[in-house]
């Protein structure tokens, strides 16, 4: 039987998107009362919840304390019901650990860490449903949560994946496309300055195609940024409206 046709001749992907189109992104900020900042992001069927605590005094081993900057502590976990087959361990497996590390690196680059020496920021990310692009959705959610927490950052961190399918670069790949075995490029960047914070590639891609895929991912990140920015501004406006009305 013929396998899946990831990109049809008419230029449509398996879910009806064109190669350059993102999935639908929906987000909410301030979903938790307890955490300093929190956000919920849906990227297509990938759903992620992020919570940020801090900055606060270092918890746990004090040895981790950095005298000149804040310690960013991340935890990435996937709900047991998030994947097709139930996961045994929500966190702590190799993949989650790797993801945790990546998140940490990403945000160390974006948060103005020197402002809070000797303290710690916790970022908790939980994937509720996974349909490809977990890292990207996690980064986007965590960014919103950090903004919600009022922690200073250089810029948004926007992440987007891209792949190269049937000689075409495609952006924001879903699980089906991800598992097709073609190369997956994951990029997290500061969209305004176009500085790349994290770039990861799974499986091989020919050098000639790399720039095409990178361009696609960059464009994807910028699109993500405009969506997130709109959401943040909306959140801000409505909250300020509340505050204003109470002050008067």
């Amino acid at each position: 039987m013929a396998g899946l046709e990831l990109l049809s001749d008419q230029g449509f992907r398996i879910d009806g998107r064109r190669p350059h189109e993102l999935r639908r992104i929906q987000c909410r900020m301030g979903v938790f009362g307890q955490a300093e900042g929190s956000a919920y992001v849906e990227q297509g069927n990938t759903k992620v919840l992020a919570a940020v605590y801090g900055p606060h005094e270092i918890r746990g081993s004090r040895g981790k304390m950095q005298p000149d900057k804040v310690l960013i502590n991340c935890q990435y976990s996937m709900a047991t019901f998030s994947t097709g087959e139930r996961k045994r361990r929500p966190r702590g497996d190799r993949k989650s650990q790797e993801m945790t590390k990546h998140l940490q690196q990403t945000f160390e680059a974006a948060v103005l860490t020197h402002l809070y020496p000797r303290s710690q920021i916790d970022i908790f990310v939980e994937v509720l449903q996974s349909d490809g692009g977990n890292y990207c959705a996690s980064v986007n959610a965590a960014t919103l949560a950090i903004i919600d927490a009022g922690i200073p950052m250089k810029d948004y961190v926007c992440a987007c994946s891209a792949s190269y399918i049937e000689d075409n670069p495609v952006v924001d790949i879903n699980y089906l496309e991800e598992s097709s075995g073609s190369a997956e490029l994951i990029m997290a960047m500061l969209p305004k300055s176009e500085q790349i914070v994290l770039l990861q590639m799974n499986s091989r891609l020919h050098e000639d195609n790399l720039s095409k895929v990178m361009d696609m991912a960059t464009q994807g990140c910028k699109d993500v940024h405009s969506i997130l920015d709109t959401a943040v501004r909306e959140h801000l406006t409505s909250s300020i409206a509340l505050q204003d009305s109470s002050v008067t």
Partner: peptide
Amino acid sequence: DRKELPFTNDQAHLVTPG
């Protein structure tokens, strides 16, 4: 959803990171 309050302050200079 209480966000639908009719108050919007256009004067306030809103910024986001970056």
